Simulated scan of single mutants.
Amino acid sequence: MPARLCRDTDADTYRTLFDIEAYLRLLARWELRGHAGRSWAGTLSATVRSDAESRRAQELADGIIDPLESGLLSYVHLSDLKDVLVGPLWAKCSRHWRASLDIVKSEFKKLIAVRNKVAHFRPVTDWDAKVVVRFAEDLTRWTRPYRKLREFEVSWSAPGDVTEEVLGLLRKHSLEPVAAELAGVAVPPGDQLSAAVVGHHVALRLKRSAGALSSQRVTALLSRNERDVTIARVGEFGGSLEVLTPAACGSDAIVALARDIVSSADEVVEGVSSEELVSAFGLDRHEGVLTSAVTFPDPYEYAEG
């Protein structure tokens, strides 16, 4: 058998490119839905949207590989994803980027050139690898302000937790009625439902006191509410669920989603191992479903090697 043709440099560069592109898709998903709610897809250009929908439809029709059951942005090319981030979204989210638009565009041009080369499995040179590493390091620095969205979140889980600070944040998004209604949602004994304002989203968190959530019930919940769920994070062993929904969806939709989450948790099952978690909860089939080990929104973090 011949020696392995994929060198460590090729594999490392591909892995970093995968992380960068996956992060940028989550970021675009976060900002698009956060600003436009259910109408987010309409903010894409007609060409980008049509091309992505065609690619997804073709993948479904072929039936050869496992398509993503949700996630239009996963079918958007990196060059188009760049145009979304530095185009219509830039004015709205540039405050979270520590870089000028011209610099970001320039670095994206280099990254896309290497990405296209890697996509055709041509060998990566030392210079190519340096371009990708440099972009990863820059992206780590550019997106650092996103950490503040988590650091300054305010949460509540009971009527007594609804402080003036909570009301002030909700009032900013015209969501003041959410505070009392969510605090009054009945949950199974021992379980806890909490909520938090995270940037232009509301995070709904359900934590089991014992056992785990049914993966079938959770996947059905996420499928049912796909248009209102930006990010979902499944906790260790399936014992908790966090759903981030755009404030732009409005009070009624957020409260209805919270009640649906609680209703989906009425079945207690045994926990699953970390190895089983991905397939059980369909984390490899949904664009915005993550494990709790991945915090989002958060800055990109480049880990060498």
Rank of each mutant, 00 (worst) to 15 (best):
residue 17 L to I: 01
residue 17 L to N: 02
residue 17 L to W: 00
residue 19 D to P: 00
residue 19 D to F: 00
residue 20 I to T: 00
residue 20 I to S: 02
residue 21 E to I: 08
residue 21 E to A: 13
residue 22 A to S: 07
residue 23 Y to E: 07
residue 24 L to C: 11
residue 25 R to L: 03
residue 25 R to E: 02
residue 25 R to Y: 08
residue 26 L to S: 05
residue 26 L to M: 11
residue 27 L to H: 07
residue 29 R to S: 11
residue 31 E to A: 15
residue 31 E to K: 05
residue 32 L to P: 11
residue 32 L to I: 08
residue 33 R to G: 07
residue 33 R to D: 06
residue 34 G to C: 05
residue 35 H to K: 12
residue 38 R to N: 08
residue 39 S to N: 03
residue 39 S to L: 01
residue 40 W to D: 04
residue 40 W to F: 07
residue 43 T to Q: 14
residue 43 T to I: 12
residue 45 S to E: 04
residue 46 A to V: 15
residue 46 A to W: 10
residue 47 T to E: 15
residue 47 T to Q: 15
residue 48 V to S: 12
residue 49 R to C: 09
residue 50 S to D: 14
residue 51 D to Q: 13
residue 51 D to V: 13
residue 52 A to E: 05
residue 53 E to M: 09
residue 55 R to S: 07
residue 56 R to P: 01
residue 56 R to Q: 07
residue 57 A to C: 11
residue 58 Q to N: 14
residue 60 L to A: 13
residue 60 L to P: 03
residue 61 A to M: 10
residue 62 D to P: 04
residue 63 G to N: 11
residue 64 I to Q: 15
residue 67 P to E: 06
residue 68 L to G: 06
residue 69 E to R: 11
residue 69 E to A: 13
residue 70 S to I: 12
residue 70 S to G: 11
residue 72 L to Y: 05
residue 72 L to T: 02
residue 73 L to H: 05
residue 73 L to E: 05
residue 73 L to C: 03
residue 76 V to R: 04
residue 77 H to D: 12
residue 78 L to W: 07
residue 78 L to C: 03
residue 79 S to F: 11
residue 80 D to T: 02
residue 81 L to P: 06
residue 81 L to F: 06
residue 83 D to M: 03
residue 84 V to R: 00
residue 84 V to N: 00
residue 85 L to M: 04
residue 86 V to A: 13
residue 87 G to Q: 00
residue 87 G to S: 05
